[in-house]
Every structure is written in structure tokens, then in C-alpha cells.
Design a binder for these strands. Structure first.
Lengths: 192, 192
DNA sequence: TCTCCCATGTAATATGTTACATGATTGT
DNA sequence: ACAATCATGTAACATATTACATGGGAGA
């Protein structure tokens, strides 16, 4: 879910620059952005932290480090900052993005007309949820999110809005007779 | 690059409904949509076709099937159509999308201001290329692409345009002094 | 025949998810 | 002390990429 070249490692390092965090913290923080970057599973997150620790890019900071279990907070080291610095100077690879929805769109010819409509509508409700989530994050700012992350939030909102707009106009165009349902759902969204 | 639950298999099946194709054909066709769905590598494509063949979801059709090497065209079977049908009735899982660009955006606080600007501008040029590619596909339609795929094309264009718009306004807002460069690049894009 | 490109195949490697197991902490 | 949740760890599995190897056909 996190995708190849970039890797979880750099994302983790980048988040640890802002403040020390545990694996659990990272997971929680990233969950809000899951639509945009994907939320790593613990099965990949914890091993990644372990590796970073062994490589000396992060250190363990915390009250109860001698215990095998228990909360562990990680803190980026100078070496880690250097690695992050190097990475940020490399050009970003353009990576594929939307996958399953567009896949189905490409195969739209195989759908029945009602099937296509259902597909578009399902996507619409998913995107609406994502937009609502991002909106909510913007509201509860200050607490856990650094102000710099507003940019990512803003970006996500802009794209979600554009997609909703496309979905609406497309559904309207293809299925004019059913446009009533779309309108109803729209009014629900705008309350969020 | 293709992502979990959905799998290459269904995409391949879906494309084979339209007409028989070889692995190479599939790869070529998908390359144009690579920004939207990801383009599978041969290392995953050929084994996938092999598996589908063994499962009886596709058959080999072609002139020289007795050869070990050489062009092989695959044709979907009734069983394959059934599998595809079942799949298309399942709800789509919302999958993460933009990854590396947004990752860097989230980490924007670690960037220097010029670094951030470079990052945004790089993204802009990538998206501009993608949009140009899609535009071109729309022009050379009829040849290799089924008319149903226009929908995916249209979707991709709408999103790319929205993203370019956001990038432009954001860059303008954050770096007003440098907005001249953006304008220049804009005029280049519109020629495509 | 030689060369270049088309087309397929495969092994090594990387990375991620799922499902499970287990230890800590907190509230009642 | 008990339950619920927090938090970490790990093995089995799935899937993709990369780099390489190989065969076939068209033209010089």
C-alpha cells in the first residue's frame, strides 16, 4: 500500500523530525492521510522502525526502554536527518495513483448501465467521506498536526472537490433520469 | 505498482473481453493509462497470463502455439467472463493514491522554501506531461482504444487539470515573486 | 549472416498485508 | 482483580519490480 521507491522509511524519518513518536503515534497520524498516501500496516511499520534503529538513523527515547514490550518513542538522529536531506533532494518519481476505480472505469464497456451508475455512485460516496475526513482534520488542527501539513490537507481537499464535481457532472450527463438521487446526497455532504 | 486486492488478473481479463491480446499488447495499451492505474511490469504480467491460462479463464489463440517462444494471443473464456462478472459486482475498495508527492508535501516543513518550490514545480511538469499524454490518446482514438475508455480518459483529464490549477494557485500564493516562471511554462503547455 | 527489435520467460529481491500472539496500562 | 484498550512483535503469505536470459522475425 505504500509503494516502491519511496518507502516507508523516509516517511517515518520525516515525521520524526517534527517530534519523537512511537509506531502507534505514526500510524494514528497517517491514518488521516490514508487516502492520499496510504496508511502502513503495523506489519510493515514496526519492522521499519527496527531497521532504522539498527542503522542508527533513529534512537530510542523513553522511560521504559529496558522492557521488551511497552511504549517506545523514537527520535531521529543527525545521521537520520542527513539521509532525509539527501532524499529530499532527489527527484520524485511519478507514481501511479487511482488504481481500482479507474480500472473499473476502463472496463466500463463490460458493465451494464446500472452497474456503471452504481460504480460511479459508490466512488462518489467514498470521495465524499475522504473529503469530510480531511475537513475534520483541518478543524481539529493545532492538536496533533504541524501547521506545515496544511498544505497536504489543502491539496487533498482541492482534488477531492474536483473529483466530486466530475462525478456529479458525469452521472448527470449519462443518467439524467436518476440525477435526483445525486442531488439528495449532495445536500447531505454539504452539512459536514 | 498495481496494488493489492484488485490484482492484475481482473484487469487483464477485462481487457481481453474487448479483443484477444498478447502480453505485449496489454502492456502497450496500459502504458498510456500508467498515471491512472499503473503499468504492470512484464515480470508480473506474463506470470499472470500463465496463471489465468492454467485456471482456464483464458485460452491461447494464435497461429504458432506449438512454439515455446513467439507471439501468443490470449482470448477470454466463458469461465473468465464469469469471474469478471462476479468481480464487477463486488464493491470497490478505496485505495490510496498519490503517495510520494503528498508524502513530500506532508514533510514540507523540513524543506527549505526554494526546495518546496522546486518540488511543486517538478510535480507540475509531471502532471502536465500526463495530461498531454491523455490528450494525445484522445486524439488518436479509434485505432486501438475502445470508445468506452473515453470515460477513463475524461476522468484523468479532469483530475490533471484540477491539480495543475491547484499547483499554480498555490505556487503563486506562496512564491509571488517567482510567478513569472510559472506563467512561461503555462504557455508551453497550452500548445500541446 | 548479422543485427536490431519484438516478445516472452524467470530468478532474485523487495516490500507490504493479514492474521495472530503477547505484553503493558488504565479504569472500574 | 478484571476487562478493555493500548502498543508492539512476528510468521506466513501475496504480489510487484528489477535485471537478466532467451527465442523469433524482418531487413541490410
Amino acid at each position: 500500500m505504500m509503494g516502491g521507491k519511496i518507502g516507508l522509511r523516509h516517511l517515518v524519518l520525516g515525521l520524526l523530525v517534527q517530534r519523537p513518536m512511537s509506531g502507534y503515534d505514526i500510524k494514528r497520524l497517517l491514518k488521516g492521510f490514508s487516502w492520499l498516501v496510504g496508511s502502513p500496516s503495523f506489519g510493515s511499520l514496526y519492522p521499519a522502525l527496527r531497521t532504522l534503529l539498527e542503522e542508527g538513523l533513529v534512537t530510542e527515547e523513553g522511560v521504559s526502554c529496558q522492557n521488551k514490550r511497552g511504549r517506545r518513542s523514537y527520535c531521529i538522529t543527525e545521521a537520520g536527518k542527513q539521509v532525509l536531506q539527501d532524499w529530499s533532494h532527489q527527484p520524485a518519481v511519478p507514481d501511479a495513483s487511482l488504481k481500482s476505480f479507474v480500472m473499473r472505469l476502463i472496463l466500463a464497456g463490460n458493465f451494464s448501465r446500472p452497474g456503471l451508475f452504481a460504480h460511479l455512485q459508490q466512488r462518489r460516496s467514498q470521495v465524499a467521506v475522504h473529503r469530510a475526513t480531511l475537513n475534520q482534520m483541518g478543524g481539529t488542527l493545532d492538536k496533533e498536526m504541524e501547521p506545515e501539513q496544511r498544505l497536504a490537507l489543502d491539496y487533498g481537499l482541492a482534488l477531492a472537490t474536483a473529483e466530486l464535481s466530475w462525478l456529479d457532472s458525469t452521472m448527470k450527463r449519462l443518467f439524467q433520469s436518476l440525477s435526483v438521487e445525486v442531488r439528495q446526497e449532495e445536500s447531505v455532504d454539504s452539512k459536514v
